[in-house]
Amino acid sequence: MKRDFAVAVKAIIVKEERVLILTRSQDEMECSYMNSRQKWDLPGGGLHFYERSQEGLKREIKEETGLDVFVGEPVSLFDVIKNHIHLCIFTYVCRWKEGEVILSEEHEAFYWMTGEEVCQSELPNWMKRDLLRAFTREKEMHIERDE
């Protein structure tokens, strides 16, 4: 039996008191090895071997959304073992730097949500928790807004 280990990174991007939420395309959901039912998503994906997490996250964000960001600290770690794969997903708080959202084929829509909209949304509870945590952490980031 073959077993695999994978590391993925996700971003909670904060821009002007709003966070970026994506919805996955139907094709992306159907091709998903780990989760074919979850339509809500955050920018990010798997790391390449020898790729540092923050650099891989910037690459994934650019590929999926066209945005440039400042990467802050991790806000959560999700660790799952399923179908002979062990997957660790690190979610980082990020601050929008520049650009307009241009979605890749992996996603079909995006939303910039306030904290209140997050609380009132149909997002899964784990995502709401991480998004609300990111609002606080983004304010604490030691990255200058003028960088």
Rank of each mutant, 00 (worst) to 15 (best):
M1N: 13
R3P: 02
F5R: 08
A8Y: 07
A8G: 07
V9Q: 03
V9W: 05
K10F: 03
K10R: 08
K10M: 00
A11Y: 01
A11L: 00
I12T: 02
I13G: 02
I13F: 00
V14P: 00
V14S: 01
V14I: 08
K15D: 03
E16V: 02
E17R: 04
V19W: 04
L20M: 05
L20N: 02
T23F: 12
T23G: 04
T23I: 10
S25G: 10
Q26S: 09
E28R: 12
E28C: 06
E30M: 13
S32I: 08
N35M: 11
N35P: 11
N35I: 06
R37D: 15
K39C: 14
D41H: 13
L42N: 12
P43I: 13
P43Y: 13
G45V: 14
H48V: 11
H48C: 07
F49E: 11
E51S: 03
R52Q: 06
R52D: 12
R52H: 12
S53H: 13
S53T: 10
E55L: 10
E55Y: 09
G56V: 07
E60I: 05
E60P: 04
E60T: 09
E63I: 06
E63K: 11
E64Y: 03
E64T: 03
G66Y: 05
G66I: 04
G66V: 04
L67T: 04
V69E: 05
V69Q: 10
F70K: 04
V71W: 08
E73A: 08
S76H: 06
L77P: 01
L77Q: 06
F78Q: 12
D79E: 08
I81V: 11
I81F: 11
N83R: 11
N83T: 08
H84Q: 12
H86C: 05
H86P: 05
L87I: 13
C88A: 05
C88D: 07
I89H: 08
F90A: 10
T91H: 05
Y92W: 06
C94R: 03
C94N: 07
W96M: 04
K97V: 09
K97N: 11
E98T: 15
G99H: 15
E100Q: 14
V101C: 09
V101E: 02
L103S: 06
S104F: 08
E105M: 07
E105C: 05
E106C: 12
H107V: 09
H107Y: 15
E108I: 13
F110C: 09
Y111L: 07
W112I: 01
W112F: 05
W112P: 03
M113K: 00
T114E: 02
T114F: 01
G115M: 01
E116D: 04
V118S: 00
S121L: 01
S121N: 03
E122Q: 00
E122V: 00
P124L: 02
P124F: 03
W126V: 02
M127F: 04
K128N: 02
L131A: 10
L132R: 04
R133N: 08
F135Q: 04
F135V: 10
T136A: 08
R137I: 10
M141P: 03
H142Q: 08
H142R: 13
I143C: 09
E144V: 07
R145S: 13
R145Y: 11
D146L: 14
E147Y: 12
